[in-house]
Design a protein around this nucleic acid. Structure first.
Lengths: 340, 340
DNA sequence: ATATGCTCTGCAATCGTTTGCACAGGTATT
DNA sequence: AATACCTGTGCAAACGATTGCAGAGCATAT
């Protein structure tokens, strides 16, 4: 309310030129078109008067909003928050603003928010909610707005994505267990419609092969969601099956926590009776009881890299889509040990 | 790229009226001005043609952006993420978009982001980074954009805020400890320039009085930040002082974790040798070793309520500032017990 | 001396809305 | 029947930038 904004016209009057000249003088790309001395006067006046361009006018004319939309399933999930932070860090530095939307994993809400972002003419989208087969993503791509997937990707190539190497991650976990001497390694896998769930399970299978362990379908349970509760239930089923095993590889840390719960109620001690390894290395996984051995996903870097690719893509829409795979790292803690 | 947007003018031509009529027919507030039948034709055509108003044009004209800015110290901090989620939940329902900015507690970054928000003409601001004396907040207020503080407030009244009742929270904690039989209760307080740190400490002091325990300056240590590391260092100082005490009230859960660390390295077992109580009840505080007794802050509700107040304020700028205090709840877990 | 080209600036249209004002036509009032 | 008042619609001016085009001024080439 206080300060009536100062516009190009105001500066123009002050300096005694046409607004268009002011526009050119202030825009680095067109600055060359105006005489040095005049340009100097203009920038000087602009500073002095506290000129701030009106983003609406700019956007209306140019259709650029310097805004990007970010879609995550859950802002409060420690396996996602760092991604946003990573994105925000690089985007802030480039003058972009980040709009977030929480979808709680419900497709309808994803759809609605993408629509909202589109209406608002965001310059680009980073999406962390993708399913392996995701019509919404296809639509987005067809629609033309620059887009990059983070953490989760679709089977559909031709879309930029940055994820971590889930398959080798899973494989490495099994190898770790095998080295400790485990022969009967169970798996509590995540949702198979998500690339993370799918590929980590795939990694588990490869790890078995690589270490000459046989695959036993009775040793793998699937979860419908990456949640503690789902993990607990799956663990319960596994235990109830009466099968013999000495270790469990969990699809992520949340599920691992669920497994902890179930082991505890059954009076088993994790790390001694049964080894458990998680995935993600989310915040506090070192504080659990016992501290969780887990595969560290470079979430912050994934977010940052996704943002960088998006920027590239916005800058030059002709840039071909790029997919990068970060490498995760095994963090040894107390939840794994030699088989009992 | 694909769909050339359809504008008011397109619809006007289709129906055979002037764009202004279309504008009026489509706006609920002015719809009464246009003949029922024509209005019907217009809305019908709008649907059919897939009309979506151009937000830039709208904003340029009206100076409303349907956007609010949210400032938090750390997106990944489980004591802040829920706030954003709460905000997003209510704002999304009202058609607003949320822009977030991460400040990492650096004043310069707060300033920069507030400036960015202002340039972008956000309709309102919710700020979770306020210091007790915060010039930036004063400037914001003077500037006129609707503003509400969340979780942390300034001493300066006359600004809307929604926080939890830290003082009684702190008091209740001490009472709990006193009831268990503790007589020598230490305190590891948070930054005193933040209302949370300040008021929780105040609550501690009141709790002492209320339970006829004497205040001993030697039993309180201050942290410069709400971090694990600061908590650990403070605990170390406290232990080194050689004073006698059986319980520690921590300014928040992060600090409590730091205390856990230090107790462990000193071979003390928390909950038996020394009781510890945290504050916030952040995610996973029930999973620590031992599960943390803590004061639950209704973070999600705080965010939601802040958003509601902000909406009120945006709707009618004359609305007097409103401050609400949520009541926290003590969650009993394993980190507290009878004194050894 | 004329033609040619280059550099700089201004003019005016445009982006897609909203909204004050004018005005046409109809209804109600006297 | 003349006047006043509504009601609904159109016109055109904003909002504050960007940008194609035209032209003024000047230097260089012929």
């Amino acid at each position: 309310m206080a300060s009536s904004r100062v516009t190009l016209r105001d500066i123009a009057e002050e300096v005694g030129v046409n607004p268009s000249t002011v526009s050119r003088a202030l825009n680095p790309k067109t600055r060359g078109m105006v005489t040095g001395e005049i340009a100097r006067q203009i920038t000087e006046a602009a500073d002095r008067m506290g000129y701030r361009p009106n983003p609406f006018a700019y956007s209306l004319r140019t259709n650029r909003s310097f805004t990007v939309g970010v879609l995550v399933p859950d802002l409060t999930n420690p396996a996602f928050a760092p991604i946003i932070k990573g994105i925000d860090n690089v985007l802030e530095a480039s003058g972009y603003s980040v709009m977030v939307a929480n979808t709680d994993n419900v497709a309808e809400r994803e759809r609605r928010n993408v629509a909202k972002f589109r209406e608002r003419h965001v310059d680009g989208l980073v999406i962390a909610t993708a399913r392996r087969h995701d019509p919404l993503i296809d639509e987005c791509r067809a629609e033309g707005t620059p887009l990059v997937l983070a953490v989760r990707r679709t089977t559909n190539s031709g879309i930029s994505s940055v994820v971590s190497d889930e398959v080798t991650g899973g494989e490495t976990i099994v190898s770790h267990l095998a080295q400790l001497g485990h022969r009967r390694v169970a798996c509590i896998a995540g949702p198979q419609e998500l690339s993370t769930g799918f590929e980590r399970h795939q990694g588990y299978v490869r790890g078995l092969n690589a270490n000459n362990l046989e695959y036993d379908a009775g040793l793998v349970e699937f979860c419908d969601a990456f949640t503690e509760e789902e993990g607990r239930r799956a663990a319960s089923r596994l235990l109830a099956s009466g099968r013999d095993f000495t270790a469990i590889v969990a699809a992520n840390d949340m599920i691992a926590i669920g497994i902890y719960d179930e082991l505890q109620t059954k009076g088993l001690v994790c790390g001694r009776d049964i080894s458990v390894v998680g995935y993600d290395d989310m915040l506090f996984s070192s504080k659990f009881d016992p501290p969780l051995t887990t595969m560290h996903s470079p979430l912050l870097d994934i977010g940052a890299e996704a943002a960088r690719i998006l920027l590239e893509q916005i800058e030059d829409p002709e840039t071909p889509p790029r997919s990068v795979k970060m490498t995760p790292e095994l963090i040894l803690r107390k939840s794994t040990g030699k088989p009992a």
